[in-house]
Every structure is written in C-alpha cells, then in structure tokens.
Nucleic acid binder design. Sequence first.
DNA 1: CCCCTCTTCTGGATCGATCAAGAAGAAAGT
DNA 2: ACTTTCTTCTTGATCGATCCAGAAGAGGGG
Lengths: 368, 368
Amino acid sequence: METRVGQDGQSDGSQRAVTLLDLARAAGVSRTTASNAFNRPDQLSPKLRARVLEIADKMGYAGPNPMARMLRTGRAGSIGVVFGKSLTYGFTDPTSIAFLKGVASVCEKEGASLLILPETGEAEVGNAIQGAAVDGFIVYCMHYLTVVNDAVAARQLPSVAVSAPETMPMSTIDIDDRSAAREAAAHLIGLGHRRFGVLALDVFGDGYDGPLRIDQMADLECTPSVDRFRGYRDALGAAGLEDAQLRAFEVSGNSEDNARKAAVKLLGQKPRPTAILAMSDRLAVGALLAATDLGLDVPGDLSVVGFDDIPLAKAVTPALTTIHQPLEEKGAAAARLVFHPPKGRPRHVVLPTELVVRNSTGLAPDAG
Amino acid sequence: METRVGQDGQSDGSQRAVTLLDLARAAGVSRTTASNAFNRPDQLSPKLRARVLEIADKMGYAGPNPMARMLRTGRAGSIGVVFGKSLTYGFTDPTSIAFLKGVASVCEKEGASLLILPETGEAEVGNAIQGAAVDGFIVYCMHYLTVVNDAVAARQLPSVAVSAPETMPMSTIDIDDRSAAREAAAHLIGLGHRRFGVLALDVFGDGYDGPLRIDQMADLECTPSVDRFRGYRDALGAAGLEDAQLRAFEVSGNSEDNARKAAVKLLGQKPRPTAILAMSDRLAVGALLAATDLGLDVPGDLSVVGFDDIPLAKAVTPALTTIHQPLEEKGAAAARLVFHPPKGRPRHVVLPTELVVRNSTGLAPDAG
DNA sequence: CCCCTCTTCTGGATCGATCAAGAAGAAAGT
DNA sequence: ACTTTCTTCTTGATCGATCCAGAAGAGGGG
C-alpha cells in the first residue's frame, strides 16, 4: 500500500515509470487482471476493476504503455501519410490540405491517428518510412519518386499511392488528368480561342522556372503535369490546331507569384494568347494577377481556366472556370483503402472530374 | 541460403514477418550484429555490413520493427497534436492549418513525425491520448477542455498547451488576446466610431448562434473569445463609452456564412453600428459579405476589423484591417518546447501581436 | 455426491528489437 | 614474450505489455 511513487507532474523526469506490473503488485492482482481492467472489463468483477483503476490513478499510471501494446498486438492504430515534397508544403498547398482533410475524416471515423512523416532528404525519407509505427501508408507525391514508393512497398503494409503509375504493387487513387485537361482546353476552343498559354506545374519538382521541358517529359511514366499537358494537346489536335499554338511555361512550387511572372511573359508574346490554361487554380490566380498588371480584362481580353477547384477558385474575382476534382474524397478514398485493403490484387480507383464554368472564361476577343 | 521467405508484395499477408533473428541466422551472425548493420555501421566491418544488408534485402526485411525498437529505446520519434474540436475542423480553419504548418516545420528539422490524434468523443479522446506512441504533446484547443488537458498531463510527457490557463502543469503558448483586442477597438474609436457590433467566436464550442452569453462567461477561466471580448470592453471603458454600445453575437464554427447572417442582424439594429469588431478574419469576411448584402460600403458606411491575419485577409476586397498574430510561429514555438522542454518549471510564452491597418476601416460616417 | 459449466483470476511464453558486458582475435607497445 | 589496446562480434537480460492455457471457486442439474 505504500509503494506510491512520487509523481507530481513533471518532477525531474528521470525516475522509472509505473508499469502494469507495479500496478498489479500494488493492487494484489496479476498483470493479466490489471491489463484486463483497462482492456477487457468483462473479464473481471466490476468491483475489482474499480479498485484497480483507482489504485492506478493514485499511482499515476496513465494506462498501458502504447509502445509495448503495439509491439504485442501488432497494431499501431494509425496510418502514415508521406509527402513527396517538403512537409510544410503539404500544409501550404490547398489541394494537399483538402486531401489531408479527407484522410482525417476517415481516420476519425475509424478512431485511428494520422501520422505525417517528415521529409529531410532522399535518404532520410526512407528512414522515416522504415521507422514509422503505422498500420498502412498513403503516398501523396506531387512528383513521383521511386525511393519513396519503394520504401513504402518494402514495409509490406496496406498502402495507397496517389497519382502513381499502376505498375506499383499497391493500390492507387487518381483522376483522369489527361481527359480532364482535354475538357478544359476544349471548352476554350469552343469559345473560339486559338492561341493558348499554358502555366504548367513543374514537372520534376526541382525548382525550375521556364519553358516547358517537353523533350525530357517522355521519360516520365506519369505525373499530373505531363498528363495534363498531353490532355491540352489532345484537344488542340482534335480541333485540327497545331501544337505550336500552345506556349507552355513551367512554374515552380505551384506559387501564385511565380505564376504571375510566367504569365506576364506568356502574355508578352505576339500574337498574344487569348487564353491561359493553368494546371492549378493557384497558377490561374497568378494569371489573373498578371492580367491586372497588364491592364487586360478577364474574360474580355483574356480567358483563364484553372484546375482543382480549390475554395479560393470561387472567392476570387472573376470567379475561376476550372476543373473540379474531388480533393477531399481523394483523401477519404485513399484512407478507406488503407483501412480496408482489397483482397488479392491492388485496386486502382479513378475519381471523376468536372468542368465548372464560372466567370473567367468568355468568347475569344478575335472570334467572329 | 534457402531460408528465403516468399514475400512478393502483398501476397496473402498472413505469413509471419521476417525478424532480425531470421536475418541474423540467414547471415550467420548474431542479432546484435544484424542490428548494428542498420543502426551502428561503425560497429562492424563494412564488408560484413554490406553482406548483411544484401541478405536483408533478399529476404524482404525492411529494417528493424519500429514498434519493438520504440519499446526498447523508449523513443517514439514523433509528437502528438490534439485538437479540441473535430479533426477535420483542424484542416479547415486557416489558423489551425498555419499552426500545424509551424509545428511541421520544426518536426521536419528534428526529423520527427507528426501524429494527429482523432476526436471521436469525450471518452475516446482520452483513449487516443493514452494510447498514442509519442514523445510529447501539443494541445491546440479552441475551447479549453479539462478532459483533454488532464489526459495529456497524465502521460507525463513534455507537453505544451495553446491558449490554456497557466495553472496547468505544462508549458503554454499564447498571445495576449485581451490587449490585442483592446488595440483593435481603440483603432476604431480613434477613427471616431462609437457604436459597435461584435462578431464573437462561440464561447463554449457547442454550436450556439445568438447573442453573446455574457453571464455564463464569468465561469470560464480563459478562452480567446472571452479574453477578446474583455479587450473590446476595456477600450470602450478607457474612452468613456458604455458597454451598451457593444452589441455582440456569437457565431458557431468560425464560419463565414454564419457570420454573414449574424452581421446582417447586427446591422439591422438602429441606430446602426458603424463598425464591426470580428474575433477572426473569417468572421470579418462574413461581415464584408453582409455589408454587400445590405448595400453598405466598406469602409465608407461601415468599418470592419478582423483578428488573426490569415492569408485571406489581404486577398479579400477591401483588404482587412486586422490583428496580426504569428500563427506559424505559435506552432513552431510549441513544437520547440516539446522537443526541448524547459528544465524545472514549465514555461509560459506570450507571443506579440500587431494591428495591421488595411482598407476595411475608415473614419466613422457620422463623425465630425 | 459428482460432474459440468461459468465466472474470475493467474503464470509462463511471447512480440522484436536494443543494451550492457564481455569474449576472441589481431595489432601494437614495451 | 607479455601486456595492452582496438576491432569485431556474441550472449543474456530487458523494455512493458497481451495472449494462451489452465486453475480455483461458485452455482446448477441429475
């Protein structure tokens, strides 16, 4: 009865923590019984349970050590999310925030936690993935990275990759970037536009700003940037237009400021493009800013189409015409696949997109 | 050499995983040596290490089991974040996103992961906190919850609470809500305003919308909502104005739409308030929308002051005058305190705020 | 009275690693 | 040649829980 360990708050921290065994001894029961008091109330009499819990409280025993429990049960009670880019970027970009929100909503439902892994460098990424105590992984990379996917695959846990090639040995969630982009471009073509500027997400995530590196794109198996560009080109081809009408700039970091600068360059060319195809709404907003800089009216002089349909898209003036993609649902679907992995072959989900026409697009100024 | 376990991707999942012991046997070395191959390269010859790692790879051994390692070393390599409200709310509200971003940036620096705990209900919150394998906690509650803080305190890990009373046995991070609010109100008073509407964050987080429940506020030790209201009142008092000039509505969920409705009510009173004090920028944006609804010009007919200075604040038209608070730094500071806890007594950090005057405030329309 | 079931509780084995201490052999100093 | 040091590797103990099989006692039915 006097085994009471001094435990006032964070006294000096260095004293051994109270364990289940200590509690069991203090309560005069076995470890199993003490354990059951916490985990299996039906396995012992309510009276004894109450007593054990009371003593636990008195001893400052907060409950079974999570690490030990995880080891023994083999369940971590959490899933990991890996970003290809810097972690802080994940909390900056509206699309990844929405994605995380979707993941979180499912986690909440499942009573699981969400572990967000750091990205300190190529090597360390692997370490973090290797050392994460999770029941499964979600890989959300803007730029497809073999290192990451391999490290995740090595863990042999239920895993889902977003926008990854279907050749990976794991489930994937995606949208049809190419046909969505095609739809965006087709919309503009239908409005009479013939000359286009493209604001592209950076293809390699290497901080490059400048003309689209088309030649190096061929090597890439799949990235949103490449697929979307192909979609734009498809639409032009279908309308009998030449690729040359498509001037494309890569913008690093999905940043509005960088997009603004790039758009100014695009719009400085002559004949000036009458429409801008932006691969994200943030890039599109950059284009709107550039239009203001140059004294161009949107949609009078210039039409702009975005991609993603982030919340900002309808808040901005003029409201953006854009490709709506189910950002949250992407996260939710990914999380569901991790919690309830498909038996047998991995599943490849493609979520629908939709062109949303708002006020940033209109008839081409030079159209009959 | 033929101990090779079938491990093609996610075969059927039910076969026992390869352990360090298996690897050691296969390589003809001891467990410790195998372990050292991963953790302490200097403890064995490079040649042997290479061989062990190669065999590990061949056997599909991804590396030491994180759970076992955590148990043995006592370190989880991650810190936990607890939201008082629903988890998804944490990914919706711009202030908490910025906060998380700050936390994430420090985690990245420390090479640690970020565990975000679910909130399924009062009871389960405790469970999640109890069962989280982390090295410390950050509590970010909009509404101060004893259950949460107690559960965290029970874990006896380095912990930091945001906007919690300093009586808690843990470090805290905060801003001086009261004097910041005072400054906001003083700014308006200086512009000649005398009649104010207040859009208040909901005091209890219970989904209530309606007149501010002043009488019930007295019981509360500390919440941003209460402190900010007191600050507004301070400023009026200092200017010799009566509290009656302060009509306040609580808005649930920090939602723009709800704020819009509340603001319409506030502005329907006569004499009409000439200024609105909003306890968050989102509420302020709601007020701007309401002004548009009612055909009021901002700042001509109505001045609006926000709070927080979220990114949206300067993007909106007119750009919001608001109280800038270092949202990201709040998260970063909290995280730093968790990673490097103060020895002895817990630390209580108060970060500075600043009034940022933009275009949503102007001279009172009825002022001389 | 005996057997069976049900409830309540217990002890040993185990999860998969790391740590502390020490053994074996090579290299070096005296 | 003998001790010392350094490198390289190994064994036994341990982290703190849960699981499995079974024991002790209570209650019920034949």
